[in-house]
Design a binder for these strands. Structure first.
Ligand code: DGT
Ligand code: MN
Ligand code: MN
Length: 648
DNA sequence: TGAGGATGCCAC
DNA sequence: AAACGTGGCATCCTCA
């Protein structure tokens, strides 16, 4: 039994759901029709009912609020994502495959939206507003104080235009806060605002479109052998939803303290820079955040350059890079260089983390990220607002940010991270004897790489100082880094190898792991012949650039084709594990908080650790194809704060 | 004064 | 950085 379902939301709560089992027909149940919803839920809980949704990540939580819990789901948006040549939007899918022309939600409620906006703007112009605070801006390296327009004048301007009130208000980014504080945000028209028949028709049409599209996409999924990949994605979705719902508790005071601390540091450093080089820049205020100004300072005024290096302008009129990787080499030449780098470091930590994250906290004191499952070309998840997958961990100061993410009282944070995961995937895929031997004998390939590049014994390898840079070098070589690229990478880590040495190292690496070399070669040939590559689970990535006449595009596609089967294979492992964990973890009373590509972060009662960890470990390690050739290991860490977790 | 490119940098 | 890959995000700057 196939039922397509869609939900509608209005005024901060579920408005209705629609369902369809037959193209051309659909039924709507209002959110207040309790009996109907109960009966409907019973139907969806039947094991033989397949509930088809378009964007389950959105609909499942809404359905849950209506007391509807489908037993088995299929998501047409994920299907379109896997197929890669389909649009992900329902309306475009419906047009392409069924010729349905569907009214956009925005158009549907536009009249009401405009009415509300007009009323809102009239309210604004009819009352006085405080003069907005002057803002400090940078204009071509010079600080300027700008007096923003009063919001009243802005509103008046929109009114005078006579149309698109809501749209124009939306584009205003400055000065809306005080209005929203007093009047609340501008409300858009919603389904509850338009005539009932129109709302019903609109809602029904989405379910109708979904039921029509499903068989068409399913046929294509089957013909490409993507069924396994598709159902694996479906099985793990509940855990992704749960992660977003759970969120992570933060220590807001600590964030504020850190912000202060970073600001103090920046002020100190800026003062020093000003004294050192202000004169060179005509005594203008030095802004280390302006790469342009810094390029002028470093290359034109100070004329810093390496021995033998010529001072020459960049071709094409582009400014020379002032990225940390480059600046690092000039540190010994002038004290301002280190100051610029340090200032940037604090600026990054302050603006991206310390200041930004507390603004996103919800009433439960927790940060709820938006996880996306259809946004990467390799099947990885992505995280946004904030991107919890990119919280600092590698620097001491940065880890203080992570320390602001904490476990609730009585709970602990637990993380489980696959060991050397993509190396194991490629070892298995290529059946490379040498690499498999490392893993089977309990060796750590990243530590070996570190020992090699830093010229130190493995027992002297430090996790942060040596092993992390070694990861980049190891994966760099695997994924076809050039000798020049490797030299640059090593130089950034303070390792100075000649170009020849780098070239030899890459050659030697692929000679040692000759099975990997053969595999990469076969994979590249497959890509050229078929225009796509696939991983051990059957997931595909199309690489059209592989046949481009543009050399840069073609080479880029070759590297993407080399990386894709391996990154896809690794993400498939963790998705498989998540799917297997879905029926297990709720009964353990443990909460999944986040997936970070090859890691799962949990929050659990302290007393659950000894019970839950072995179960999680068992499942994660077992979630590989039966043909997988490498041993799988997961490293667990535990702690009260995310930045101070200890090996378990 | 907002959109979007360029630059730089956080994570895996 | 310039030719390891996958992401998201803040700031500066130019342009309209
Ligand atoms: N191409 C590329 N892939 C990377 C890089 N860093 C991480 N990855 C990918 C490959 C890794 O296997 C995977 C997970 O990252 P981890 O930091 O967990 O490293 P890995 O599992 O290899 O080692 P570990 O967990 O420390 O034993 O993400 C990188 O710099 N380049
Ligand atoms: Mn790992
Ligand atoms: Mn990891």
């Amino acid at each position: 039994m196939l039922i397509a379902v869609d939900t509608e939301w209005a005024r901060d709560k579920p408005f209705c759901l629609s369902f369809s089992s037959q193209p051309g027909t659909a039924t709507v149940i209002r959110a207040d029709q309790v009996q109907a919803l109960t009966a409907f839920n019973e139907q969806l809980q039947e094991p033989e009912t397949l509930t088809v949704l378009h964007n389950a990540l959105y609909d499942l939580p809404v359905l849950a609020q209506m007391g509807v819990y489908p037993a088995k789901i299929a998501d047409t948006m994920v299907m379109a994502y896997l197929l890669q040549d389909e649009p992900q939007a329902l309306k475009q899918l419906a047009y392409r495959h069924c010729g349905m022309i569907m009214t956009d939600y925005k158009d549907m409620v536009e009249a009401k939206t405009e009415e509300l906006a007009l009323d809102y703007l009239l309210q604004i112009v009819s009352q006085p507003w405080p003069k907005p605070a002057p803002v400090l801006e940078w204009a071509k390296g010079e600080p300027k104080v700008r007096q923003p327009q009063n919001i009243q004048r802005k509103a008046l301007r929109i009114l005078k235009a006579g149309k698109d009130f809501a749209l124009k208000w939306k584009t205003i980014s400055e000065g809306k806060e005080i209005v929203e504080e007093r009047l609340g945000p501008l409300r858009a028209g919603e389904l509850c605002d338009i005539p009932h028949e129109d709302a019903v028709f609109y809602a029904a049409r989405d379910a109708d479109a979904t039921i029509r599209i499903y068989p068409i996409l399913w046929e294509r999924i089957q013909s490409q052998g993507l069924e396994g990949t598709f159902w694996r994605d479906m099985r793990m979705l509940p855990m992704v939803i749960n992660m977003m719902k759970n969120g992570i508790l933060i220590d807001q005071e600590k964030f504020a303290e850190l912000s202060q601390y970073f600001q103090t540091k920046m002020d100190q450093i800026q003062g020093r820079i000003q004294l050192q080089v202000g004169k060179l820049l005509d005594n203008k205020v030095v802004n280390p955040g302006s790469s342009q100004q810094m390029a002028t300072l470093i290359y034109d005024k100070l004329e810093l350059h390496l021995k033998g290096g010529k001072h020459k302008a960049k071709k094409g009129g582009k400014q020379k890079s002032t990225a940390a990787e480059v600046l690092k080499r000039y540190v010994g030449l002038h004290p301002v260089v280190k100051d610029i780098m340090d200032w940037r470091g604090y600026q990054k930590l302050k603006s991206t983390y310390a200041d930004a994250i507390p603004k996103l906290v919800k009433e439960d004191g927790r940060i709820h990220t938006h996880l996306k499952v259809t946004r990467t070309s390799t099947g990885r998840l992505s995280s946004a607002s904030p991107n919890l997958m990119a919280q600092p961990v590698r620097s001491e100061e940065g880890r203080r940010i992570r320390d602001c993410f904490i476990a609730a009282p009585g709970y602990v944070l637990v993380s489980g991270d696959y060991s050397a995961i993509e190396m194991k995937v490629v070892a298995s895929e290529s059946a490379d004897g040498r690499m498999l031997e490392i893993f089977w004998s309990g060796g750590d390939i990243h530590t070996q790489t570190a020992s090699d590049m830093f010229g130190i014994p493995t027992d002297k390898v430090d996790a942060k100082k040596h092993r992390y840079p070694a990861k980049r070098v190891g994966f760099g070589i695997l994924y076809m880094i050039t000798a020049e690229g490797l030299q640059r990478e090593l130089a950034a880590d303070g390792v100075d190898w000649t170009l020849q040495e780098c070239e030899d190292k890459i050659k030697a690496w692929f000679r040692i792991y000759s099975g990997v070399a053969d595999y990469m070669k076969r994979n590249g040939e497959f890509a050229k012949r078929y225009g796509y590559v696939k991983d051990m689970w059957g997931r595909r990535r199309y690489v059209p650039g592989i046949r481009s006449t543009n050399k840069w595009i073609r080479m880029e596609a070759e590297r993407q084709a080399g990386n894709a089967p391996i990154q896809m294979g690794a993400q498939g492992i963790i998705k498989e594990a998540m799917g297997r964990l879905v029926p297990v973890y709720p009964d353990l009373g443990i909460k999944p908080l986040l997936q970070i590509h090859d890691e799962i972060l949990w929050e659990m009662p302290e007393e659950m650790v000894s019970v839950a960890l072995p179960i999680i470990e068992e499942i994660m390690c077992a979630s590989v194809p039966s043909t997988f050739l490498a041993p799988v290991a997961v490293d667990f860490e535990i702690g009260k704060r995310w930045g101070s977790m200890k090996d378990y």
